[in-house]
Design a protein around this nucleic acid. Sequence first.
DNA 1: CCAAAAGTGTTGATTATACACCCATGC
DNA 2: GCATGGGTGTATAATCAACACTTTTGG
Lengths: 253, 253
Amino acid sequence: MKSQYPLSEQGYIQQLSIDCVIFGYQDKKLKVLVPKLNFKGEFFALPSGFVYQDEDIDDAARRILRDRTGIQDVYLEQFNVTGKANRSSKVFLDRLIEQNPELIAANVQKLNETVSGIGDYDWFTRRFISIGYYALVDINQVTAQKTDLDESIQWYDLDNLPSMIMDHNQIIGDALETFKLTLDQKANAFHLLEETFTMKDVQELYETIFEKQYARNNFQKKILEMNALERMEKKFTGAANKAPYLYRLPKRE
Amino acid sequence: MKSQYPLSEQGYIQQLSIDCVIFGYQDKKLKVLVPKLNFKGEFFALPSGFVYQDEDIDDAARRILRDRTGIQDVYLEQFNVTGKANRSSKVFLDRLIEQNPELIAANVQKLNETVSGIGDYDWFTRRFISIGYYALVDINQVTAQKTDLDESIQWYDLDNLPSMIMDHNQIIGDALETFKLTLDQKANAFHLLEETFTMKDVQELYETIFEKQYARNNFQKKILEMNALERMEKKFTGAANKAPYLYRLPKRE
DNA sequence: CCAAAAGTGTTGATTATACACCCATGC
DNA sequence: GCATGGGTGTATAATCAACACTTTTGG
């Protein structure tokens, strides 16, 4: 996926980037998958990328997720566009170079090997319009893999995010806001759970997302009345109590 | 606002356009302001434009509205991004040229005088990502003015729109859908009315938008409970009945 | 004083929340 | 049988829609 050529010659649409906010859920916590860039200094950046000339923007978002995190076939929603005139990664890149002075050395080959190689400085520091996507993934099903670009890629609790480059913290906030605001409408929170799940799982998820408690029986009614779930066989856990039903999203054809 | 230079040299962001859907309301009908292009043939196109390098996308949308329709200071909302790989105006432009063969004549000066001058054919027929904005305007306050680019600019009933170029009919549909879906949340429908209005005006507006009837008293309660309106003095119409209160949106500071 | 339309209060239905009960499960 | 947690039914509260009544206005 990497290229010897500078970004400006790889057939991308100019000045347009896609930023992906990947939400996961575990232990009653909402989490975001955040890569840490493989440079000296603390540089956390959302999985981002550009759009090929012959590629739908939705496909670009999926490709970026796949290449950067190893995650395939996830639920995706576009949530907004950030387009301030002064929005560029110049401040971030200059700070990065300052802390990684070897990058300006005449090691041209190495520069071009890194995707954000400083050979692309001019291209990269132009003003960028960013289309934001959020993804909802089953954190257990997915094993995020870092690329050469990343020193690490890790899940962070939503209330304990690292300080990120540019406006990426802001973008995460916008993604969360849109997710919560449209959740009832889209009924998409289930994508954060495993393929099958109990009603208790759903309730705990909702309680985490909206930060409030629900009554067990009424919650069950509300969810089932959406007719969005398929009831499966019971789940025998070995515990000394009635086995709960399992549910899943109906197979999409 | 026009330029002798081709579009590619005017400092726009490449392959990024803004399309504006301007909603108005009159005689219990929702309307959209649609310019008809000043060429032979029936070419209806949303007011569209591009984003300058040093310009916020929101500002660009406002500028496009102002330059193309004469409308200033309107309520604007970004609603989505259309980014299919095969999205370009090539089909439309070729049809336009076919019906306007004089455009390919060697009259270079005239070509460059028109904003969509065919001198820009290559630039213009590239794939474009479109950011959609919808505007809500007071149809009485606003007198749309056509530019040289337009043969006419006219309000069309939403249920009687002309067949438009590219995916512009689709974009209008998306704009309307988002408007309706977020209306309660944003409480922004009032921007379609005059500066002051009666509760009956509001009710008729809502009945038009949602295509259903409301009970007068309950509707009044619902609207007032939003606390979004300021009650003014009464409106004496001369009719032999109780004068209704006037309302307005509180002055924004 | 009357007709017309606006404003507001009151009732009834619907829906949402709280409470209660029963059921399955493994020890 | 009993403790535990799940499923479902019922009562209560709150919300929303329907009805009724009063007020204002100009003739």
